[in-house]
Simulated scan of single mutants.
Amino acid sequence: MKQPCLLFHGFTGGPYEVEPLARHLRERGQLCKVPELPWHGESYHQLKSSRWEDWVKAAEEHAETMTRDYGQFDMVGFSMGGLLAAYLSVRYPVRRLILLNTAVIYVSPGRMLEEMRNEWKYQRKISLNKAKSTPLSAAWQFTRLVRKLKPELSQVSIPTLIAQSERDHVIHPQSARYIYRKVRGQREIHWHPRSNHLICHSDDAAVLFRQVSAFLDKEYTDDGKNKYEP
């Protein structure tokens, strides 16, 4: 029987960011929970009044529910959700940790400008509109959460998959290398050359999903080392 899985979306995003991966996991028989979290981008006023501690508390409540209902579970975190997933993996019975474009070095200015130029060219002013609709106070809370939770990565000792888009305009690719150096358990890193920030919706998504399935199906010894060569 496959372990249930909890998936977290990113800052100002929503469940849609990781839903394609959740569908893939469900098709292989895995129960998936994809909650809408307090840092989603649908409510300006909710974002404006919330603090990073509220986000951590909400993440812990979902982990507590998974622990109570299922015991051990797998964890996927996208962007800012990746940092929270790593934080939870140290405190709850998480079996496998999957980090997608996780926010450690969270802005690549050159890539962001390139993406905004492309969106203006195609009259899809997504990044600019999103920036205008995100309260400055929420952006500040986001940076505080990154600073507070970044040290947690060195406490992660369970098997971890790190995936990073090479064309990410939000998270700098160096984030993946940083995470790979910091986590202490068995880990693997995968680069996706055709993907932008929304990796689960990218041209590399099918490859990513196969990598995730293979990672979840690997057998590990109790000390976290893989029994088999990758």
Rank of each mutant, 00 (worst) to 15 (best):
V183F: 02
R124A: 09
Y44E: 03
P151S: 14
R181G: 08
A85C: 01
H40M: 00
R68I: 04
R124V: 10
L216M: 11
E27D: 15
G14K: 09
I179R: 05
G224R: 05
A85F: 02
Y106K: 03
I98F: 08
P230N: 01
R23K: 14
S89D: 11
S154R: 15
V18C: 02
I199G: 13
S50F: 07
D203G: 14
K225W: 05
D204Y: 03
K132I: 11
R91G: 00
P4H: 05
L208F: 06
R184H: 01
W140N: 02
E53L: 15
D222M: 09
V107I: 10
R124W: 12
D203H: 10
F73W: 09
E119F: 06
H190G: 10
P15Q: 13
L216T: 01
I179C: 05
H24Y: 14
T221D: 13
M112V: 02
E27T: 07
K121G: 01
G110L: 14
S108H: 09
P20A: 06
P109N: 07
L128K: 08
L84H: 10
R117M: 15
H169V: 00
M116F: 07
A131K: 12
R144F: 03
K150N: 05
S89W: 03
N129A: 10
H169C: 11
W191L: 05
F11D: 04
N196G: 10
R117P: 03
K57W: 03
L97E: 04
I105L: 11
H201S: 06
K218S: 14
W191C: 03
R91D: 03
V104Y: 01
M66V: 01
R26C: 08
P93Y: 10
E229A: 04
D54C: 01
P20L: 03
Y44A: 03
I126A: 10
K182W: 05
R184N: 10
L99T: 02
Q155E: 11
P135Y: 00
G82Y: 05
C32Y: 12
W39K: 04
W120R: 15
Y70V: 04
P173V: 02
N118T: 06
S213K: 00
N118Y: 13
E42T: 05
P151E: 15
D74P: 04
S79G: 07
E166A: 06
G82Q: 07
L7M: 14
I162H: 02
P173Y: 00
R111N: 07
D74L: 09
H172A: 12
Q141K: 07
Q174S: 15
E53F: 11
G71E: 06
K121Y: 12
E53A: 14
E114F: 00
Q155G: 00
W140D: 14
A138G: 08
R167T: 04
T102D: 06
Q3D: 14
G10V: 06
A85N: 01
M66W: 10
A176E: 03
L25N: 06
R95Y: 02
I105H: 12
R184K: 15
K148P: 00
I179Y: 04
E36K: 14
K121T: 10
M112K: 10
L37I: 09
Q211D: 10
S137F: 03
Q164P: 09
L100A: 01
R147Y: 05
K121F: 11
K148H: 12
L21Q: 04
A59G: 12
H9N: 04
L113P: 00
Y87D: 13
L208W: 02
R28C: 02
H45A: 08
P109L: 15
G110K: 12
